[in-house]
């Protein structure tokens, strides 16, 4: 059971990264490869706010959300808007990820930093497995944010507009929706989400610069398995990846866990390219 708990925890982090991808993807059909690095930045700011500044928990969250959201908006401006075409955007988002990694390393160094958890650090025993409160909180966060994503996208004017943009950009423009502002907004929201998660992910993973690139890939797999642009997809995809990773690590050996995730990715992409919850997109020659 402990293995399952740790798989679910990993899955929660991947799912939260996938959710961040989805927020941006739904509104602007952009895949923001640097999103996981934004989350990593969030863990560092959490460290800085908690350990260096010794701020109260509420302010830590606020600071993380604001700073990371601002960085995400900058990213949209310099790495997304001037670039046409997916190849170019992949290059620039990888560039932004690297830039962010470099800057983070300059400020905080390359050593992993321990981010203290604001809640209890006592191990719990749930369903016969050992689990930390922070891990439960991560899982809770995934469920809550995925639910918010679904609720907003289905139940508010903003959400309806978001889905309209993803279905037909031009028709959305003709309804007076400021598509560009939506794109910036999506980056800001996904950045804020990444920031808010900093103080929760940090205690689990430590604040370490190299976290971004591996999270980016696993988050991508979660999104691909769940379906591009789907909230429930991010949840299910994340958990699937987390469980595959921890279970195969447990029963086949550490070295096989990434390999199994990769196999799952290939299988989904070749057999069901839209993912489990994705929509088929019509193609025109």
């Amino acid at each position: 059971m402990t293995v399952i708990w740790s798989g679910l925890t990993l899955g929660a982090i991947y799912g939260l990264v996938a959710l961040g991808y989805n927020i941006v993807f739904v509104t602007s059909n952009v895949f923001n490869f640097a999103h996981a690095q934004l989350l990593t930045l969030g863990t560092f700011i959490a460290f800085w706010a908690t350990v260096t500044l010794k701020l109260p928990t509420v302010l830590v969250f606020l600071l993380c959300a604001v700073i990371v959201a601002a960085v995400a908006v900058v990213e949209e401006r310099i790495a997304i808007r001037p670039v046409r075409g997916t190849e170019g955007q992949l290059v620039t988002t990888v560039g932004f990820l690297t830039l962010l990694e470099g800057v983070t390393q300059l400020i905080w160094g390359g050593q992993p930093l321990q981010v203290p958890f604001f809640g209890s650090e006592k191990v719990l025993s749930v369903f016969g497995g050992r689990v930390f409160p922070v891990e439960l909180m991560l899982m809770g966060a995934l469920v809550v944010f995925a639910a918010i994503f679904v609720a907003v996208s289905r139940g508010t004017m903003l959400g309806i507009a978001m889905l309209a943009v993803s279905e037909d950009r031009e028709a959305a423009l003709m309804r007076g929706i400021n598509v560009r502002a939506m794109a910036i907004g999506a980056f800001a929201v996904s950045g804020a989400l990444a920031g808010l998660l900093g103080p929760v992910v940090g205690p689990e993973t430590f604040a370490v610069v190299s976290l971004g690139s591996s999270l980016a890939l696993k988050g991508f797999v979660a999104m691909a398995i769940g379906g591009f642009g789907s909230g429930p997809g991010a949840l299910i995809g994340g958990i699937t990846v987390g469980l595959i990773e921890s279970e195969s690590g447990r029963y086949l050996g550490e070295s096989y866990s990434n390999l199994m995730v990769f196999t799952a990715l290939l299988a989904v992409m070749l057999l069901r390219p839209t993912g489990l919850f994705g929509h088929a997109r019509e193609r025109v020659v």
Binding site: T98, L100, E101
Partner: peptide
């Protein structure tokens, strides 16, 4: 890393 990143951007 900073320079690589800027270069790619």
């Amino acid at each position: 890393l900073v320079i690589y990143g800027a270069l790619l951007l």
